[in-house]
């Protein structure tokens, strides 16, 4: 879809309005509930373990550039860094996309500041490594093996290199928490990490960790939208069953005969 169709305009605006509305309601002090998410509770445990063992923590915000996923990763990492800073544990963060470096450095150093430990922050701890996928992975693998981190947190966009990082951390016995919207990498994190944040738990993470009204509101808004989508899809399913495919028309983009046109069954020959 290069430009919005009328249904697209309506649906997108409704979705956006629901989210923005709940955010504003939450900022005005509406009380909101969020259920327990086990993987996210584990973050504190992992930081605690690192403190006990007296070894460092590795944070990675993945392979994304300046995008929504990576900014969310950065927000999660900042929360972890401030917990680590409170206990005086060292945090290291290799960066993939150079343009993110200033913002990451800023975020981590302000996390230290907030914990009153600005002295413990060294700008070498947030360092650019490489923007080449496997060079980054090799560098991180080397760092993990040499520094023998007690805990690693992998959040953000990941591709194949996820397993290289997670297996190396597993070898040095680090406790690992990982979360990514790159669904294809989740099985590998499940195999190598102690806790995995799946699906949109990733976007719930900051709300869960900080309990900030804005984020909580957004999360509740997302939940409502998801319920709306599910109900609409179910309704469409039932209507199709009753031979009234309303929803089909609603989501219609442009007539797309490609599949049937080229399907040999209907005879293109």
């Amino acid at each position: 879809m290069n430009h919005a169709t009328w249904p697209a305009r309506v649906i997108l605006i409704v979705i956006s309005a629901v989210i923005v509305w709940t955010v504003i309601a939450a900022q005005r002090g509406k009380k909101l509930f969020i259920r327990r998410i086990p993987g996210l509770t584990a973050i504190d445990e992992a930081v605690g373990r690192a403190v006990e063992m007296g070894r460092g923590i590795l944070l990675s915000s993945g392979l994304g550039g300046i995008d929504v996923v990576t900014l969310q990763a950065l927000a999660i990492c900042t929360n972890i860094a401030s917990a680590a800073a409170r206990y005086g544990t060292k945090v290291q963060m290799p960066i993939y996309e150079a343009a993110l470096l200033p913002i990451a450095e800023d975020a981590i150093s302000s996390a230290y500041n907030k914990a009153g430990r600005s002295d413990a922050f060294s700008s070498d701890d947030v360092r650019y490594l490489s923007n080449q996928q496997f060079a980054y992975a090799a560098g991180v693998a080397g760092m993990i093996q040499r520094e023998q981190y007690a805990a690693t947190f992998l959040f953000g966009t990941f591709f194949a290199e996820s397993l290289i990082m997670a297996e190396n951390a597993n070898m040095v016995g680090a406790i690992q928490v990982a979360g990514t919207p790159s669904t294809t990498q989740i099985p590998f994190f499940i195999a190598s990490c102690d806790y995995v944040i799946i699906g949109d738990e990733y976007y719930a993470a900051t709300a869960y960790l900080t309990r900030q009204p804005t984020l909580l509101g957004s999360m509740i808004g997302q939940d409502r939208v998801k319920i709306g989508i599910l109900v609409t899809v179910m309704l469409g399913f039932l209507l199709t069953m009753a031979k009234m495919p309303l929803v089909k028309n609603l989501f219609e983009d442009k007539d797309m005969p490609a599949a049937s046109y080229y399907s040999p069954a209907k005879g293109g020959k």
Partner: peptide
């Protein structure tokens, strides 16, 4: 999973775009 991620991404984008977020940066 994708539906959830899509909505989550859209919500995060909205917060950033409208500067609703009082995030770290």
């Amino acid at each position: 999973i994708d539906f959830g991620l899509g909505v989550g991404g859209l919500a995060t984008a909205l917060r950033l775009w409208l500067s609703l977020e009082r995030g770290s940066y």
